[in-house]
Amino acid sequence: MREAVREREFREFAEARQGQLRRSAYLLCGDWHQAQDLTQTTLMKLYASWGRVRRDGNVEAYARTILTRAFIDQYRKRSWREEPVDEVPEPASVEPVTPELRLVMQAALMELPPRYRAVLVLRFWEDWSVEQTAEALRVTPGTVKSQSARGLVRLRGLVEGLAGETSGR
Protein backbone atom coordinates (compact mmCIF):
# COMPACT_ATOMS: atom_id res chain seq x y z
CA MET A 1 0.00 0.00 0.00
CA ARG A 2 2.73 2.39 1.05
CA GLU A 3 4.80 1.34 -1.93
CA ALA A 4 1.87 1.97 -4.28
CA VAL A 5 1.40 5.50 -2.94
CA ARG A 6 5.09 6.14 -3.24
CA GLU A 7 5.13 4.96 -6.86
CA ARG A 8 2.06 6.99 -7.77
CA GLU A 9 3.58 10.17 -6.35
CA PHE A 10 6.80 9.55 -8.22
CA ARG A 11 5.02 8.85 -11.49
CA GLU A 12 3.11 12.12 -11.22
CA PHE A 13 6.31 14.04 -10.66
CA ALA A 14 8.22 12.23 -13.42
CA GLU A 15 5.49 12.71 -16.02
CA ALA A 16 5.21 16.41 -15.21
CA ARG A 17 8.91 17.21 -15.05
CA GLN A 18 10.79 14.99 -17.44
CA GLY A 19 10.43 17.45 -20.32
CA GLN A 20 12.06 20.26 -18.32
CA LEU A 21 14.77 17.94 -17.10
CA ARG A 22 15.50 16.86 -20.67
CA ARG A 23 15.82 20.46 -21.80
CA SER A 24 18.26 21.23 -18.99
CA ALA A 25 20.18 18.08 -19.88
CA TYR A 26 20.31 19.20 -23.51
CA LEU A 27 21.87 22.52 -22.50
CA LEU A 28 24.51 20.57 -20.61
CA CYS A 29 25.39 17.93 -23.18
CA GLY A 30 24.17 19.38 -26.49
CA ASP A 31 22.63 16.13 -27.73
CA TRP A 32 18.97 15.14 -27.40
CA HIS A 33 19.55 11.40 -27.15
CA GLN A 34 22.20 11.83 -24.51
CA ALA A 35 19.86 14.23 -22.76
CA GLN A 36 17.16 11.54 -22.76
CA ASP A 37 19.61 9.05 -21.19
CA LEU A 38 20.61 11.60 -18.56
CA THR A 39 16.96 12.24 -17.75
CA GLN A 40 16.29 8.53 -17.30
CA THR A 41 19.34 8.11 -15.07
CA THR A 42 18.25 11.09 -13.02
CA LEU A 43 14.71 9.80 -12.52
CA MET A 44 15.99 6.32 -11.70
CA LYS A 45 18.23 7.65 -8.95
CA LEU A 46 15.46 9.91 -7.77
CA TYR A 47 13.04 7.00 -7.42
CA ALA A 48 15.63 4.99 -5.48
CA SER A 49 15.68 7.76 -2.84
CA TRP A 50 12.13 8.99 -3.30
CA GLY A 51 10.95 8.49 0.28
CA ARG A 52 13.81 10.48 1.80
CA VAL A 53 13.65 13.19 -0.87
CA ARG A 54 9.92 13.63 -0.31
CA ARG A 55 10.46 13.96 3.43
CA ASP A 56 13.24 16.52 2.95
CA GLY A 57 11.18 18.50 0.45
CA ASN A 58 12.42 20.42 -2.61
CA VAL A 59 12.32 17.49 -5.01
CA GLU A 60 12.93 19.79 -7.97
CA ALA A 61 16.28 20.98 -6.70
CA TYR A 62 17.29 17.44 -5.81
CA ALA A 63 16.43 16.21 -9.30
CA ARG A 64 18.49 18.96 -10.92
CA THR A 65 21.40 18.26 -8.62
CA ILE A 66 21.32 14.58 -9.61
CA LEU A 67 21.14 15.57 -13.28
CA THR A 68 24.15 17.89 -13.11
CA ARG A 69 26.25 15.43 -11.13
CA ALA A 70 25.32 12.59 -13.48
CA PHE A 71 26.38 14.73 -16.45
CA ILE A 72 29.75 15.59 -14.89
CA ASP A 73 30.37 11.97 -13.82
CA GLN A 74 29.48 10.70 -17.27
CA TYR A 75 31.76 13.20 -18.94
CA ARG A 76 34.61 12.33 -16.56
CA LYS A 77 34.23 8.60 -17.20
CA ARG A 78 34.06 9.14 -20.93
CA SER A 79 37.19 11.27 -20.91
CA TRP A 80 39.02 8.56 -18.96
CA ARG A 81 38.05 5.97 -21.53
CA GLU A 82 39.18 8.14 -24.43
CA GLU A 83 42.09 6.68 -26.34
CA PRO A 84 44.57 8.60 -28.46
CA VAL A 85 44.03 8.41 -32.22
CA ASP A 86 46.37 9.13 -35.08
CA GLU A 87 44.16 11.69 -36.75
CA VAL A 88 41.91 14.10 -34.94
CA PRO A 89 38.43 14.14 -36.54
CA GLU A 90 37.02 17.45 -37.66
CA PRO A 91 34.65 18.84 -35.03
CA ALA A 92 31.41 19.32 -36.91
CA SER A 93 29.66 21.34 -34.24
CA VAL A 94 32.38 23.95 -33.80
CA GLU A 95 32.02 25.32 -37.30
CA PRO A 96 28.38 25.99 -38.01
CA VAL A 97 27.38 25.32 -41.59
CA THR A 98 24.76 28.03 -41.62
CA PRO A 99 25.34 31.39 -39.98
CA GLU A 100 22.49 31.01 -37.55
CA LEU A 101 22.65 32.60 -34.19
CA ARG A 102 21.49 29.42 -32.49
CA LEU A 103 24.30 27.35 -33.96
CA VAL A 104 26.88 29.94 -32.97
CA MET A 105 25.53 30.03 -29.44
CA GLN A 106 25.37 26.29 -29.13
CA ALA A 107 28.83 25.79 -30.57
CA ALA A 108 30.21 28.34 -28.13
CA LEU A 109 28.46 26.68 -25.22
CA MET A 110 29.77 23.25 -26.16
CA GLU A 111 33.27 24.66 -26.40
CA LEU A 112 33.22 25.43 -22.69
CA PRO A 113 34.55 22.86 -20.21
CA PRO A 114 31.69 20.77 -18.71
CA ARG A 115 32.10 22.28 -15.23
CA TYR A 116 31.82 25.82 -16.54
CA ARG A 117 28.80 24.80 -18.59
CA ALA A 118 27.17 23.25 -15.52
CA VAL A 119 27.79 26.41 -13.49
CA LEU A 120 26.31 28.63 -16.20
CA VAL A 121 23.25 26.41 -16.68
CA LEU A 122 22.53 26.21 -12.96
CA ARG A 123 23.16 29.89 -12.31
CA PHE A 124 21.49 31.46 -15.33
CA TRP A 125 19.04 28.87 -16.64
CA GLU A 126 17.82 27.39 -13.37
CA ASP A 127 18.29 30.73 -11.53
CA TRP A 128 20.09 29.09 -8.64
CA SER A 129 22.08 31.07 -6.11
CA VAL A 130 25.84 30.75 -5.77
CA GLU A 131 25.39 28.69 -2.60
CA GLN A 132 22.88 26.31 -4.19
CA THR A 133 25.13 25.83 -7.21
CA ALA A 134 28.15 25.23 -4.99
CA GLU A 135 26.28 22.58 -3.01
CA ALA A 136 25.06 20.82 -6.13
CA LEU A 137 28.51 20.72 -7.69
CA ARG A 138 30.27 19.98 -4.37
CA VAL A 139 32.58 22.99 -4.65
CA THR A 140 33.00 26.20 -2.67
CA PRO A 141 30.96 29.33 -3.44
CA GLY A 142 34.22 31.03 -4.41
CA THR A 143 34.82 28.40 -7.06
CA VAL A 144 31.32 28.91 -8.43
CA LYS A 145 31.88 32.67 -8.62
CA SER A 146 35.23 32.34 -10.37
CA GLN A 147 34.04 29.64 -12.79
CA SER A 148 30.93 31.65 -13.54
CA ALA A 149 32.93 34.79 -14.31
CA ARG A 150 35.50 32.91 -16.39
CA GLY A 151 32.76 30.99 -18.18
CA LEU A 152 31.02 34.21 -19.14
CA VAL A 153 34.25 35.75 -20.43
CA ARG A 154 35.10 32.66 -22.46
CA LEU A 155 31.58 32.36 -23.79
CA ARG A 156 31.63 35.96 -24.93
CA GLY A 157 34.98 35.46 -26.61
CA LEU A 158 33.82 32.29 -28.32
CA VAL A 159 30.60 33.85 -29.58
CA GLU A 160 32.49 36.84 -30.99
CA GLY A 161 35.02 34.56 -32.64
CA LEU A 162 32.44 32.22 -34.13
CA ALA A 163 30.27 35.11 -35.29
CA GLY A 164 33.29 36.66 -36.98
CA GLU A 165 34.07 33.37 -38.71
CA THR A 166 30.57 32.92 -40.04
CA SER A 167 30.20 36.52 -41.20
CA GLY A 168 33.59 36.40 -42.91
CA ARG A 169 32.51 33.57 -45.22
Binding site: A14, Q18, H33, M44, L46, Y47, R102, L109
Partner: peptide, 19 residues
Protein backbone atom coordinates in the same frame (compact mmCIF):
# COMPACT_ATOMS: atom_id res chain seq x y z
CA UNK B 1 17.68 30.67 -28.43
CA UNK B 2 19.47 27.31 -28.36
CA UNK B 3 16.45 25.46 -27.00
CA UNK B 4 13.83 27.18 -29.12
CA UNK B 5 15.81 26.77 -32.30
CA UNK B 6 16.63 23.15 -31.73
CA UNK B 7 14.06 20.61 -32.85
CA UNK B 8 13.41 18.28 -29.98
CA UNK B 9 12.69 14.70 -31.09
CA UNK B 10 9.59 12.98 -29.76
CA UNK B 11 10.82 10.68 -27.02
CA UNK B 12 8.84 8.03 -25.18
CA UNK B 13 8.27 8.47 -21.48
CA UNK B 14 11.10 7.28 -19.29
CA UNK B 15 8.94 6.91 -16.17
CA UNK B 16 8.48 3.12 -16.40
CA UNK B 17 12.17 2.55 -17.02
CA UNK B 18 13.03 4.88 -14.14
CA UNK B 19 10.73 3.00 -11.76
Amino acid sequence: VILDGSREPVFPSVTDAAV
